[in-house]
Simulated scan of single mutants.
Amino acid sequence: MKEVDLEGKPEETQPPYHVLARSLLYPGSHTLRFPVPDEKVPWEVDFPLYDPPAYSADHKDMAVQDPFSPNPMGRTGLQGRGRLHCFGPNHALHPVVTRWRRNLDGSIIRKSLKKMLEVLVAQYPLSDVWSLPGGSLEPGETLPLKLKWILRREFWPQFQTLLKQGTEIHKGYLDDPRNTDNAWVETVAVSVHFDNQNNVEMKRLNSFLQGCDPELCIRWQVLDKRIPLHANHKDLLHKVSTLLGAYY
């Protein structure tokens, strides 16, 4: 897997501290976080009034780690495990699968002189938001359960090969609304780009997608800053656009 340094490019417009991890209402609950202003996020900054509530949703087969591991990016306004599976880092994998957006004659569509991309996105049952086809990694697993749900079993090995040939665009902490002071998401995001519309693996992928679970919505979506996706996933798309020199 190739690695590329994208630091200082998409992040230039991003705030210095996690934002989604301080969303006042914790997702999937009625729990409100203790408000944390930007300047009080770092643990090194004294915050004597800080008194966050604790919240941990029920999970079966919970892999408990040190419950006192501090979030490496600072305060979130909530203690406990939240909706995450374990204390400390919760590992994830997010493939960013792209192709060029093309006209009917096969020519690549451009906007502001830059080539336009399409990205593979999914909408899971009980969710009204589109997301990248990845997610949490169970211990010992190499592909997220959500990704396996999308791909037919016979295509799993080929997709793992595509990931190895892809370019790593992010590794580490991910600003996520489920993060707490004691549990957080760390992900590896990999760019898998099909440069040629006649690519055999892309045609095979498309054929498998047509036969995936009928409860699952999956599609190729035009990639730009207005894309209806989770905010932290849009940060990953910005990195891919920068990597490929594409419009965003």
Rank of each mutant, 00 (worst) to 15 (best):
E7C: 05
T13Y: 12
P15Y: 03
Y17K: 06
H18Q: 14
V19Y: 12
R22Q: 06
S23I: 05
S23Y: 01
L25Y: 06
P27Q: 08
H30T: 14
T31P: 02
T31C: 12
L32I: 03
L32W: 03
L32S: 01
R33A: 00
P35R: 11
D38T: 02
K40Q: 11
K40I: 02
K40D: 09
P42R: 11
W43G: 00
D46I: 04
F47P: 00
L49V: 10
Y50W: 12
D51C: 04
P52M: 07
P53C: 02
Y55I: 05
H59P: 03
K60D: 12
A63G: 06
A63E: 15
D66L: 05
F68I: 02
F68S: 14
F68E: 14
N71S: 10
N71G: 05
R75L: 05
R75F: 04
L78Y: 03
G80W: 06
R81G: 05
R83L: 13
H85K: 15
H85I: 06
P89Y: 09
P89L: 08
N90F: 01
H91Y: 13
L93R: 11
L93V: 07
V96H: 05
V97T: 13
T98M: 09
N103T: 09
D105S: 01
D105C: 06
S112D: 15
M116G: 00
V119Q: 08
V119K: 09
L126H: 15
L126M: 15
L132D: 03
L132H: 05
P133K: 10
S136I: 12
P139M: 08
G140E: 10
T142N: 13
P144N: 08
L145C: 04
K148T: 08
W149A: 07
W149T: 10
I150G: 02
R153H: 10
F155L: 14
Q158F: 05
F159T: 07
L162T: 03
L162E: 11
L163S: 03
L163R: 00
K164R: 14
Q165P: 03
T167C: 08
E168Q: 13
E168A: 11
I169A: 06
H170P: 02
K171C: 11
P177R: 08
P177G: 02
R178S: 12
R178F: 10
T180P: 00
A183F: 04
E186Y: 02
A189F: 03
S191F: 06
S191K: 08
H193R: 08
D195T: 07
D195Q: 11
N196S: 11
N196C: 11
N198F: 10
E201W: 09
E201K: 11
M202L: 15
M202E: 12
R204L: 13
R204W: 11
R204D: 08
R204G: 01
L205Q: 09
L205R: 07
F208M: 03
G211K: 15
G211C: 12
C212F: 04
C217P: 01
W220E: 08
D224K: 07
K225I: 04
P228R: 09
P228A: 06
A231E: 14
H233P: 00
D235H: 08
V240I: 02
L244D: 00
L244C: 00
